[in-house]
Design a protein around this nucleic acid. Sequence first.
DNA 1: ATTCATTGCACCATCGATTGTGCAATTTTG
DNA 2: CAAAATTGCACAATCGATGGTGCAATGAAT
Lengths: 352, 352
Amino acid sequence: MENRQKKKATIYDLSVLSGSSPSTVSAVLNGTWQKRRIKESTAKLIRGLAEEHQYTANLQARGLRSSRSGLVALLLPVHDNRYFSSMAQTFEAHVRGRGQCPIVVSACRDPEEERQTVEQLIAYSIDELIVAGATDPDGVYEVCAGSGIKLVNIDLPGTKAPSVISDNYQGGRLLTEAIVRHFNADDPLQADDLYLFGGRDDHASRERIRGFRAIKRELMDGDADRCIVPTGYSPRTAQTAFEQFYEREGRLPRGLFVNSSINFEGLLRFMAHHPNEMFADIVVGCYDYDPFGSFLPFPVIMIRQDVDGMITKAFDLMSESRPAIRTHVVQPELVPPRTALQGPLDAIKDIE
Amino acid sequence: MENRQKKKATIYDLSVLSGSSPSTVSAVLNGTWQKRRIKESTAKLIRGLAEEHQYTANLQARGLRSSRSGLVALLLPVHDNRYFSSMAQTFEAHVRGRGQCPIVVSACRDPEEERQTVEQLIAYSIDELIVAGATDPDGVYEVCAGSGIKLVNIDLPGTKAPSVISDNYQGGRLLTEAIVRHFNADDPLQADDLYLFGGRDDHASRERIRGFRAIKRELMDGDADRCIVPTGYSPRTAQTAFEQFYEREGRLPRGLFVNSSINFEGLLRFMAHHPNEMFADIVVGCYDYDPFGSFLPFPVIMIRQDVDGMITKAFDLMSESRPAIRTHVVQPELVPPRTALQGPLDAIKDIE
DNA sequence: ATTCATTGCACCATCGATTGTGCAATTTTG
DNA sequence: CAAAATTGCACAATCGATGGTGCAATGAAT
């Protein structure tokens, strides 16, 4: 009854109740009381009152005074795929582990939205920011410049802040090679039957394409520009690309390198209009891992990026005082078909 | 050069530069200047200076003064599955549409974590909060009580705040019936060959189970408690349950109602240790939709909950001044096998 | 030429916590 | 017992924005 009051208690309320000054209350409740030589008994009294009245600090006030907030943000392009959602999950675990408050926002892969969102975050005095897969990382940097925010790019590199990315070239190589080798020696995959679909003109796509071409040249007799079909990161445009190919050729390529699980959803949409038999002889390599994708009716080889490794590295960089502006590369992992890997959810304790 | 200063400009800086008072600057920049009868020319001058010096309001200060923040939060159990990640995506679009700032956090399905997280959010003067799939919605309410936050439960209902949930009973019926009817008449599914795996003792699971049993009684000759195997929402425990069943019976049930896509991942893990042939005669119904899950090598029928409908309803409720404490029910949708539905990502414009 | 209304803005208290500084009371030292 | 050192805390400025109130200057009405 008594502690179901309407307004939240402040240090001033507790100050009156305890007979101490607000600054004493503040010191006791934020842990600096030893430094201020507050008596243990005083501290105990105040802590008791705080407990009794359910005191919680007004973090906006604290943030205003100290120009910090305890908030750590992750800016994603989108939430709705397993790569980024596992990144969010991993990120939260890390931030909580450091005793801070994680928040996740997305900016729809829109440079203007990215900048505006970050501006908002800065206005809330976010302490640290991880920008994942930004369309314009350096634009984000400009917004952050001079705000004192710690900034690390992840997934796509920038030139103004430290970055942590996957080795997309190596991943592209691994995946392409695995596709090629998945075919039997008696009916090997031909160079003009191995296509790459998806992605756009960003660093990750370029590197993966570079790896794709390198393997094609090394393992097969050639490569061609028409074997590369960038579609942007969208299911719809990818679907269109598959359908156009099918219109033209009457079939799909036997070897398909799909540049992201988002583009893979375009292939699903295509599949919905065609029977499974059409995919009998096909091998798909997908950059990014999705557990369900791994068990489709045809062989699906996937690349899992080391999200935990990247996030860990990003926080390492943030804890450095003046991290070098360079790009750190983390190795991704090849995932054979029909593989159910553990993910960040496995770290969560189950009740039930 | 000159606008690359180290510290952010404040209304006091602009006040000096413009020769007006801070309150005038404030009024001009927050839009209340008409009400305060500021001259158009003064306003224009100040807006120009603000632009030039890249002024952005300190939202912590504003929030402190006005005890509002412009932040709207979504509290999820976890990020890393398509149901909740699409919820995050949809939520963000709605909040941005209202000109506010969305933030998403997760609390790992841990009641204590839920309460602590919400306490933090309140400390930042979050204006509105949607709590999705909370283990203890009423516990969250207690924390919010008297803070003036607008609160709506979603996915799992509470008794202290308005709630929006799926019609899980109806969804359970739909899904169970679809599983049964997917078998041929010449070799129909028997009651003791239709199992439900996953979920726990929450409202959603209970309702789905109720629907499951109702259909079993209506369409088949019986039902049995042993056909229901709650595992909690975790891939690992679900996997164990499938493996134990397999140990015991030497096979899986022909009809499988899997209570969430998270539990379905447990089936994937089981699949990784067994050949596809084992699943030749199986029909799976999964509560929650995952596009990749829909295309597995056996028929997978899914339920898609109307996330957009639920979020829309939730915001409708929030905009009411004193919404009734009741539970609103939204109809879910049955998704036949091999179906690639559009999702919230389709609303995002593509830049190629 | 007064009086009154309107315009246009400045002043100041306030939101709740942090932190540098000062000082009385107590304890220690010589 | 006086001087010095330490303990324990209060005071007050501050962070940046908001909004109620007051007041001078200008124009309108009588």
